[in-house]
């Protein structure tokens, strides 16, 4: 019981670190691809958190495992759409710098 709580704490710290790295990527980086990578890091962090929350004495709960797998596949779909949009952005703007995407205004 004590051991499970310790393992949970370690993984939760890892989740917080991953969330911080992902948010840093999205906020600070100017490259579209790095922003997509940041989104994927955030998705991975939340998937890890689902597994940590399902951690018990007899391993990870089946519900947590199924939720993590479905969440991973949804994350892959989002990455695919995002990368397709990055390609289209490059075709129009000839750059993947987010600062150049400023034409759309009120």
């Amino acid at each position: 019981m004590q051991n499970t709580a310790q393992v949970q704490t370690v993984y939760m710290v890892a989740v917080v670190v991953l969330i911080a790295v992902g948010l840093y990527c999205i906020i600070a980086k100017r490259e579209l691809l790095k922003i997509v990578i940041g989104i994927e890091i955030l998705t991975s962090a939340v998937n890890l958190n689902i597994l940590v929350m399902g951690l018990g004495d007899s391993g990870v709960d089946a519900l947590a495992q199924s939720m993590a797998v479905i969440s991973m596949s949804i994350g892959a779909c989002i990455a695919a759409v995002a990368l397709a949009l990055v390609v289209d952005v490059f075709r129009h703007y000839k750059t993947t710098d987010i600062r150049k995407l400023r034409r759309l205004r009120w």
Binding site: I39, L42, A82, H92, Y93
Partner: peptide, 30 residues
């Protein structure tokens, strides 16, 4: 270009929101 730019901005904003919601759901599950 309008469609592509709007689509990418919408994706980034909305995906971050969805991930935050999933984090909340995982805490409720925990």
């Amino acid at each position: 270009w309008e469609a592509v730019e709007a689509g990418f901005k919408y994706l980034v904003m909305s995906t971050i929101g969805s991930i935050v919601a999933l984090y909340g759901i995982s805490l409720i599950y925990g």
